[in-house]
C-alpha cells in the first residue's frame, strides 16, 4: 500500500482508477489499452504539474516520505559487496549510523550513512536516524581507516538531528561533532557527501565536510528543522511552512547560495517512486565524482576543501 502525502492526494484517485481498470481488463480479458494509456498520460501530467510547483515545505515532506530509500536500501541496490564495520571502540555501536567497506563496480570505498527505520521496531533500533556521539566517533574511526588504506569516502546524510538526550550530552555530543568537522578537513582521501533525505543541522554536518557536497532534489539541509525554527522564532509550531520558506532549505536554494556543490535529480514524483532508478543515478554520480577527485593531488584537494567552506557566508565589510 503506497503512502500518499497530502499534496499527492489528487494523484491517488487517478492511480486507484488506473489499477481498477487494469484489473478489470485482465479479469474480463478486454482491451482497455487506449483508456489506460490516456489515464497514464493524465497521471504523468498531473504529477508534473504538482511537482513543478512544490513548496519548500512539500519538499521537506518528500524528504521524510516513509517509502523513501534509506542508506541500507542504497547499499542493497548499488553495492556488489558490502562489509559492515561496527563500533566506535569506546562505548558501543550506534545503529543510527551505518558504515563499512563497499565495492561498487570494482571501485571500493568507505560508505558511511545515517539510517532511519521503516517500522516502529526498526525506528526505535535506529533511534529515528538520530546519532549519538558514538555514531560520529564510529564514522570518524572508519574515515581514518579509509585514509590509512587510501580509499575514498562517501557519506549519506539523512537525519532529523543529532540525538538530544541525556546520555548523548554525558558522552559529549558537541565534542564528537566538532571533532569530526575538524578532522574531516584534513582527510587525505576524496570525500563525497550526499544528502539523501533530511540534513538537520550539526547532526548532518558532522559527516558532511566533503570535497563534493551534493543533495538529492527533494531533500532539505539547514541549521534547524522548520518545526523547531517555527517554535523558537514564532513561538508556535504552526509556522513550519513559513520557516521552511524563510530559511531557504531546499537543494535548489542551497546550490544558489553556494552552500553545496550540486543537485542529484530524482525520478518524477520523488525517489520513493523508483528506488532502482534512484540508486542507479546515485551510483553513477558517486563513481563519476570519485574519478574526478582522484585526479587531484591530496594536498590540493584538502586546500580546495578548506577554501570552499571558508568562502561561505555573507558579510558587509
Amino acid at each position: 500500500m503506497r503512502t500518499y502525502l497530502d499534496f499527492e492526494k489528487p494523484m491517488a484517485e487517478l492511480e486507484r482508477k488506473l489499477e481498477e481498470m487494469k484489473t478489470l481488463a485482465k479479469e474480463n480479458n478486454v482491451d482497455f489499452s487506449d483508456a489506460i494509456s490516456l489515464l497514464e498520460g493524465n497521471i504523468t501530467n498531473l504529477r508534473k504539474e504538482i511537482f513543478e510547483n512544490l513548496t519548500r515545505w512539500q519538499r521537506v515532506q518528500l524528504s521524510r516520505h516513509p517509502d523513501r530509500p534509506y542508506t541500507l536500501d542504497y547499499i542493497e541496490l548499488i553495492c556488489d559487496e558490502f562489509i559492515e564495520l561496527h563500533g566506535d571502540r569506546q562505548v558501543r555501536d550506534d545503529p543510527a549510523i551505518i558504515g563499512g567497506l563497499a565495492n561498487v563496480g570494482g571501485q571500493s570505498f568507505m560508505l558511511i550513512g545515517q539510517q532511519k527505520g521503516r517500522n516502529t521496531k526498526q525506528r526505535q533500533h535506529r533511534n529515528f536516524g538520530m546519532p549519538n556521539p558514538e555514531g560520529y566517533r564510529k564514522a570518524l574511526r572508519l574515515m581514518k581507516l579509509a585514509e590509512k588504506f587510501n580509499k575514498p569516502i562517501v557519506t549519506l546524510i539523512d537525519t532529523p538531528g543529532a540525538f538530544p538526550g541525556m546520555e548523548a550530552e554525558e558522552r559529549g555530543q558537541g565534542e564528537a561533532i566538532a571533532r569530526n568537522l575538524k578532522e574531516m578537513f584534513m582527510l587525505k582521501v576524496p570525500v563525497i557527501c550526499i544528502v539523501i533525505g533530511e540534513g538537520a543541522s550539526g547532526g548532518a554536518l558532522g559527516i558532511a565536510i566533503g570535497d563534493r557536497v551534493l543533495m538529492l532534489e527533494n531533500t532539505w539541509y539547514s541549521v534547524i528543522s522548520p518545526e523547531n525554527c517555527s517554535a523558537i522564532l514564532w513561538r508556535s509550531w504552526d509556522f513550519k511552512e513559513q520557516a521552511a520558506e524563510a530559511m531557504k532549505i531546499t537543494a535548489k536554494d542551497m546550490k544558489k547560495n553556494k552552500l553545496i556543490d550540486g543537485i542529484i535529480s530524482e525520478p518524477l514524483g520523488g525517489a520513493h517512486l523508483d528506488h532502482n532508478w534512484m540508486a542507479e543515478e546515485l551510483k553513477r554520480v558517486i563513481l563519476e565524482n570519485i574519478k574526478e577527485l582522484a585526479a587531484i593531488g591530496d594536498q590540493d584537494r584538502i586546500d580546495q576543501r578548506i577554501d570552499k567552506f571558508c568562502a561561505m557566508g555573507v558579510v558587509v565589510e
Partner: peptide
C-alpha cells in the same frame, strides 16, 4: 537561525 544554511557552514569554516 536567520542565516539558516549560512550559519550552519560557519561551524565548518571555523573548524
Amino acid at each position: 537561525m536567520m542565516e539558516a544554511g549560512f550559519s550552519l557552514m560557519q561551524m565548518a569554516k571555523t573548524s
